[in-house]
């Protein structure tokens, strides 16, 4: 398992939390968790699916769906150029990879967000893949697990991105009606439109320790209220305390926790 963005490849890496210099293999063999301080390094979507599916085996779904530039959006760079650059660097999956496989022997669909692709931002492709994942769960009576890791809606697709929140939530409403379980896993970071739609709508909401989770980002809140935010604000443990999560689970126990929850709803 290769660590993503914030862990440099090489023999040694530095933990961004405890600043300890760690042997690379020691971290990768520990599901990208710092063996000294338990800091959870960010994972790629592919690593996440490998971690959660039996033997790391799964079938990737809805692969051919690609982003377009519906607004002709140009900021400091044209959106199509950004897309090309990210596709080259990260892969063709945009900010969401959907896989079907088994979790402790039971079939399930997992939709994992890819933060390295434009900050895991949700545009039409993320919305479409989520909607199709939900529809496949409905058609095949499968449970759905989402793993959120996102800064929110993708500005470059304007209000179309915003509408993905409604589109996905409408699908989840149908899963509820049909009695199909949906587990939401929230990882660092989960903010904005992703939190304010599917990430908060799990029958069960599970977060990894220390993850930043919120609607507004901490910088926006600081600017609004013009004061420093309290320590631990908008972290997993804070949300658990305020009743927004069912549990905070260490990565090494995550798969077992999901599998156990699914057994209740089979």
């Amino acid at each position: 398992m290769k660590p993503e963005a914030n862990v440099r490849e090489g023999l040694w890496i530095k933990c961004e939390a405890c600043k300890e210099i760690l042997y690379h293999k020691e971290v990768t063999n520990n599901a990208l968790v710092c063996p000294r301080c338990d800091h959870h390094f960010r994972m790629t979507a592919a690593q996440r699916l490998e971690l959660l599916f039996d033997e790391g085996q799964y079938k990737t779904l809805f692969r051919p769906i690609r982003s377009v530039d519906p607004l002709g959006f140009v900021d400091t760079k044209a959106y199509p150029d950004r897309l090309k650059a990210y596709t080259r660097r990260v892969g063709p999956g945009d900010a969401l990879i959907v896989g079907q496989g088994n979790i402790e022997g039971e079939p399930a669909i997992i939709a994992a967000m890819e933060y390295a692709f434009m900050g895991g931002s949700m545009g039409s492709v993320v919305g479409e893949k989520m909607a199709r994942a939900i529809e496949r769960c409905l058609a095949r009576k499968l449970p759905l697990i989402s793993v959120a890791c996102s800064g929110g809606a993708r500005m470059q697709e304007g209000v179309l991105s915003l509408m993905q929140m409604a589109k996905i939530s409408a699908g989840l409403a149908r899963m509820r009606e049909k009695g199909l379980p949906y587990i939401s896993v929230l990882t660092d970071p989960t903010t904005g439109g992703v939190t304010a739609s599917f990430a908060m709508l799990g029958d069960i909401n599970i977060a990894e320790p220390g993850a930043l989770i919120g609607f507004a980002g901490p910088r926006v809140i600081e600017q609004t209220i013009r004061q420093k935010l309290p320590e631990g604000f908008q972290r997993s443990e804070f949300l658990l305390e305020h009743g927004m999560l069912d549990m905070v689970v260490h990565r090494r126990d995550l798969k077992a926790a999901i599998a156990r929850c699914l057994t209740y709803f089979r």
Partner: peptide, 22 residues
């Protein structure tokens, strides 16, 4: 939606998401 400490504590994201679903 208001970006404030109290709004976050009481689940701004959850409130919005639930409305979308319902």
């Amino acid at each position: 939606a208001y970006p404030g400490i109290d709004a976050e504590e009481r689940g701004q994201a959850e409130a919005i998401a639930t409305n979308l679903l319902e």
